[in-house]
């Protein structure tokens, strides 16, 4: 009897949690007819926001990958004084409220700020805001992915005549790719949803700095169907990223399998 009650409690909790998480998504797609929803996608506000989001995401993620990857490799493979501090600095944007990040970027890059640039309220500002909030997710995952590569493979590559750079590109990067892809998927998802830091640092100017999440906010009082359509679009993109993430993680697993398998030889 007691056992049944316990199992019942687990079941009730699970059903409540699943319903709570799924309900808003279902509501977005059922509030108006799918046809109405699809029609809104031709609205210039949606197209402009989509374009701004795509451009800034692409640029921001290029920055994250190009600068984040070498940073993560250094932090993962070298032990030096101040490493702990460096890792903490990388992780800081993760716990910073987005609005605070936006204000920080503003006073750092603003005309009156630390660096005295004219970046605020331009598309560059959007790119920087997205890179600032999404970069740490990638770098953290990349550090873990690089640390998981067995250093014996690096030693083997060196004794086979490859220098550190060739070893990195031909051995370390392919072995870490699953973890890197998973980290990047998370970073893209976080970057696409970026709102707080962007509105503070870049404003919400249609065609210039208005990304998809900012367009949702801007259209909220103007045309609710547009708001719903953009939300639906973002749900689909997020779902695609989640699936990519799951694929990437199985990818890592199959590569890291190194135990003995007495399988019949594949050549016959």
């Amino acid at each position: 009897m007691r056992r049944a009650a316990f199992f019942g409690a687990l079941l009730v909790a699970t059903v409540v949690v699943l319903a709570f998480f799924a309900l808003p998504i279902i509501a977005i797609f059922t509030h108006v007819s799918p046809v109405t929803l699809a029609k809104q996608l031709t609205n210039p506000v949606v197209d402009d926001a989509l374009l701004v989001s795509l451009k800034t995401t692409l640029l921001a993620q290029a920055l994250v990958l190009l600068l984040g990857t070498p940073t993560a490799y250094l932090l993962a493979t070298r032990r030096f004084r101040g490493r702990f501090l460096a890792v903490t600095v990388v992780e800081l944007p993760l716990v910073l409220p987005p609005a605070v990040a936006g204000i920080g970027l503003l006073v750092a890059f603003g005309r009156m700020g630390l660096l005295k640039t004219s970046i605020p309220f331009t598309q560059t500002a959007v790119t920087l805001a997205v890179a600032f909030v999404s970069g740490p997710l990638y770098v953290r995952a990349a550090i873990a992915a690089f640390e998981a590569v067995d250093p014996t493979f690096v030693d083997a590559s060196r004794t086979l005549g490859a220098g550190p750079a060739r070893t990195f590109f031909r051995v370390v990067l392919p072995l870490a790719r699953g973890g890197l892809a998973a980290g990047e998927a998370l970073a893209v998802a976080r970057g696409l949803g970026e709102f707080g830091a962007t509105i503070m640092f870049a404003g919400s100017l249609q065609r210039v700095t208005q990304t998809l999440p900012l367009a949702i906010y801007a259209e909220f009082d103007v045309n609710f169907d547009v708001t719903l359509a953009i939300s639906g679009l973002l749900v689909l993109i997020s779902a695609a990223i989640l699936i990519a993430l799951k694929v990437a993680s199985t990818w890592t697993l199959s590569l890291q399998r190194s135990g003995f398998r007495f399988a019949p030889s594949t050549s016959t």
């Binding site: 030693d155 060196r158 490859a162 220098g163």
Partner: peptide
């Protein structure tokens, strides 16, 4: 290491997976 001509056979062989 890459400048020394050694043939190193590692304990678990360290074949690139």
């Amino acid at each position: 290491p890459e400048e020394r001509r050694v043939g190193f056979l590692f304990q678990e062989y360290a074949l690139f997976p």
